[in-house]
Structures are given as C-alpha cells and as structure tokens.
Design a protein around this nucleic acid. Structure first.
Length: 478
RNA sequence: CCAAGGGUCGCAUAGCGGUCAAUUGCACGAGGCUGUAAACCUCGCGGGCUUGCCCUACGCAGGUUCGAAUCCUGCCCCUUGGA
C-alpha cells in the first residue's frame, strides 16, 4: 500500500512530480510539510492547513520525548488518534536537536558550556552605557560568576576583565577638567552601573549535548533533566508515536564543523542508520510505518557522495537530506547536486528544514520531492507574511491605514476577508488573532505555491514559474 | 491650615555627593529568523558632530561643594491623614 511513484519529469531540470501513498492518504509531490513540532502547527489548525492543500505534517520525537508525552500518546493509540487527524504524519528523529541544542558539541561547546573563552566573553557581554574608564582599566564587564548572584545586590561592583584583583576608584585630573577612574589596588570602588550578560548567552550556558558512539545525551533546555536518545530509543519512540514516515536518528553537523569532524560524525550517523534499520526490521511493524534514512556530509563533496551511497545502500523507503547545507544560499544547490545523483531515482527525497521560497525552487530543480520548514509559522509569529512581492513585516505603524489585503495576488481566506490595517492593529495590540491570521495566510500561501509548482511541472513550465517568482523575490536574496 | 510622604529622559521605575546622559520594564524604531529552547532574538531610543568628546537635561529658583538627580533654603504641584 505504501508506495512512491514518479508520474512526470521536467524536461529542462531534474524536477519531478510524484505520488506518495501512505496508510493515511496520498501525498502529491513536490510538497511542503507544515511543522507541528509538539503536535500543533502553532497559530492554525491542522484542518485549516488541510483546507489549503497540506497533505502531511511533521512532528518531533525530541519534543514529545523530553516530557514523556509519547507514553500518553501511545496509550491513545498514536499521534493520529491523539490529535484526531487522519492525514499522514512524519516524525523527525531528534537528530536535529543534537545540533540545535548543542551546537558543535563534540569539539567544544558541550564541554565548554560552563566556560567562556576570553574572546567570546568580550564579544558577548555588553553594557548599555558607553562610557569607559579613561585610563588604567580595560574593558568593563561583569564576571561570569556574577550571573548566579542577584544583580541588584551586586550592581555596585564590577570587575575589569584581566584585572580582577584591582578595585577601582574615582580620580580627577588636577585642573578638574576631566573625570575618570583608574585602577587602584585595594580600594573599593562603587558604581551603580550593571554590566549585563546577553540573554541568549546565559541560556546557552545552561545546556549541552554530548555525543558518543551509542547516542546523544541532552540536558533538557526546558527543565534541566538529562535525556538520552539513541538510534534504538528514537525509533522505539517514533514507533509509539505512530507516524506514517519516521526518520533515522542522525547527527546534524554545524556549518562551522570542519572536514575532519564532519566526516567523523557522518560515519557515526551511518552506523546509527544501520542500527535504525536493524531495529525496525527486528520489531513488529503493526502500523506499517516506513523509515527514511538521512544523508549527512556537510558541505564536502566527497562526504556527500559517500553518505548518499552508503545511506542508499540500506533498505530505506526514502531519504532525508540533512546537515549543513553550506554557508550561503548558493551552497545549497551545490550540496544537493553532490548528493542527489547518488540517491536512487525511484525513491522520495525530503530536504530537511528548508523553506525559503528561492531555496524551494532551486531544490525542486535538483530533484527534491518533499520539504518541511518552520518559517511560515515562525515568521507569522514574528509579524512577517509571505507575499508574491517578497516578505512583508506588517508590524510597522504605516500599515495601520493600509486597506489592501496581505497579498493582493493571494486567494486565501485571510486575504479575501481582512486588510493589512486590521492585521497590523491586531499585531500591535498583541492580539493572538493577528498571529493566527498571519499563520493561516503563510501556510496557505506556501501550499498554494507548491500547487502552482506541481502544475507548472505538469505543463513543463517550471522554469517559467521559477523565473516569475524569483523576479519578485530577487530583492530577498542575500 | 497642620502633619507625613512624593515630583527622574513618552509612561512606570531605580539611583540618593564623582563610571550619571542617568537602572530596569513598557512603548516606539530598525534588523534577524530555513528537520521550532523561537508570539523570539539582536541593536537603537535627549541633541550635535571630528564617535569620544561637547551641549542641554532628574518640578522651579537659589545655595553649599573642585563636583549636585543626590545635601540645604524658598516656592509650585501631587498623595494620604488631621482640623
């Protein structure tokens, strides 16, 4: 019953039309998979997304695992029953969180979580006032150790990095024309300024991921619990969640990882892939789930080739393309062209986490069938809409008088019924409804784009459609 | 009229002799966001340029001091009690 069939190929590119059959329905590819990490799309219902053409949704193992929620979901009979949707679902394995929660863990961040190298320390701590001691002292910053202390209590003291043993006191030049401070051992200086560490650096400090051959250990960002995921446990959890398509547990490497580390991580991901296959073959598959393997290899041509060939050699139903896709947009196509030629033609290819408009066009052209991305819903929560003329931030007050719909060319219910002015008003007043309207529009907009893309491939006009869109999007390209 | 407490950069707060053009939150403005630690994050937010210095600023007016948002005096307002 589960099958993938290519029904048409674009004559000018590697773009293709396909039909992916699952136990919960048919998916027409290329398609976009809205992401509902914790079992909700955030801001709109699954029903609403379906109305605009969503045929599959993505959820996340890590987020349904960290609080043991998968156990509840299992008791309900799986995600479809728990969420009461009949649409196909895919679950990510948690591999991405190895990266996103523990950036560069293996070569430092995990271990360094409690230590700030001097350089990054200087870079990342700031204060709001500009004035600095005019002489005798270096950069003024609070000490990391102060972070555990009530800032209000310790606000009257500061430490000069690199001169911790000095206290500071006021000095005046003899003609009174200058005021300043100088380092003055053993005198206590009192000031009212606070040197405040940036928020996200504080957050980073609290978390880590450690990766070993067996799997990955997380310190949960939400409650500090220590969590462990392995290929086996990820698959077990995904079996309990019961999605139609599940992903192998991988390690997503960072764009900053070097060749050596990327290769090491890739080979480990390959061994993990074998274990994922093994456990799925060994256990019962009552729900008829299929497994996608994930290609890694970062932005290195030979690694991408190796990874594609290795992952292709295992009995996966389809393939996810993951990991770093390079340091710029241009690299994405390059990496895909190093990857896709080594994947079997007749199996579905899912480009993990990609969803900007130009990237979607470029990826489809290289032969990608499925996408997922948080951008439509996240941008909506961040006041930004997709339009045929590029992205549009609707928060600025100038839109309070704009009677036009979000995108005059869009045919979604939001654009049919509401003005930019109303949505701007809602966003500025922090009414949740504003975010809901934007979320629905963005999802509708991108799903409509995917439909246009499928139609264009059918009519052999994909390149025309691409040019047409990118013409208006060109100012978005970085 | 008496007593007590207050008036700080849009609003609200902190500061109570010198790192004070002044803390923090809100508001405002600009950027960012690609398998969701994300309704979030970063930056800016008196004026001027030569971007580290100048000018104007803590109710108003004086005073003390090398130096006042901070201490003193008077005035004007506000709050709460009392007559």
């Amino acid at each position: 019953m589960f099958s993938f069939k290519i029904i048409q190929k674009d004559k000018k590119s590697k773009a293709r039309l396909g039909i992916l059959r699952t136990h919960h329905g048919i998916i027409h590819t290329p398609t976009f998979t809205p992401v509902g990490t914790k079992g909700a799309l955030r801001g709109l219902s699954f029903e609403s997304a379906k109305k605009y053409g969503a045929e599959i949704f993505m959820m996340n193992t890590f987020h349904l695992f960290h609080n043991d929620r998968y156990k509840i979901i299992e008791k309900f009979g799986g995600l479809h029953k728990f969420l009461n949707i009949k649409t196909p679902i895919m679950t990510d394995s948690g591999g991405f969180q190895v990266f996103s929660l523990g950036f560069g863990a293996e070569h430092g961040v995990g271990k360094v979580a409690n230590i700030f190298p001097e350089e990054s320390y200087h870079k990342n701590f700031s204060r709001s006032s500009q004035s600095h001691p005019s002489s005798g002292a270096g950069l003024l910053i609070s000490h990391p150790a102060d972070r555990s202390v009530n800032l209000k209590k310790c606000r009257k003291q500061f430490i000069v990095f690199g001169a911790e043993n000095y206290k500071f006191s006021a000095f005046y030049s003899s003609d009174q024309s200058r005021r300043g401070y100088k380092a003055c051992p053993q005198k206590v200086f009192v000031t009212k300024n606070i040197y405040k560490p940036k928020k996200n650096l504080l957050a980073l400090n609290k978390n880590f991921v450690k990766i070993d051959e067996e799997g990955a250990t997380f310190k949960s960002p939400l409650d500090g619990r220590i969590l462990r995921l392995t290929p086996e446990s990820s698959i077990e959890i995904q079996k309990k969640l019961g999605a139609d398509i599940i992903f192998a547990f991988d390690e997503c490497t960072s764009p900053l990882s070097d060749y050596k580390y990327t290769k090491k991580a890739m080979n480990r991901t390959h061994r993990w892939a074998e274990r994922c296959v093994k456990i799925i073959q060994k256990s019962k598959n009552e729900k008829g789930q299929v497994l996608f393997g994930i290609v890694q290899g970062g932005e290195y041509e030979d690694l991408r080739k190796d990874s594609s060939e290795f992952i292709s050699s295992l009995p996966f139903f389809g393939f996810g393309i993951g990991g770093s896709l390079g340091k710029s947009k241009q690299d994405i196509v390059k990496v895909l062209n190093w990857t896709i030629p080594y994947l079997p033609e007749n199996k579905p290819r899912h480009l993990l986490g990609i969803g900007e408009i130009d990237d979607i066009f470029n990826a489809i052209e290289t032969g990608i069938d499925l996408f997922d991305c948080v951008i439509p819903t996240r941008w909506a929560r961040h006041n930004t809409a997709f339009t045929s003329n590029g992205r549009l931030n609707l928060k600025p007050s100038k839109y309070l008088t704009d009677k036009k719909p979000i995108d005059p060319k869009c045919s979604c219910d939001i654009c049919k019924n509401y003005s930019r002015a109303y949505i701007c008003h809602l966003l500025r007043e922090k009414e949740i409804y504003g975010v809901m309207l934007l979320s629905e529009h963005n999802i509708a907009w991108i799903l409509n784009l995917m439909r246009e893309i499928r139609e264009s491939i059918k009519e052999n006009k994909f390149d025309t459609l691409k040019k047409q869109y990118l013409k208006y999007y060109c100012h978005l390209l970085k």
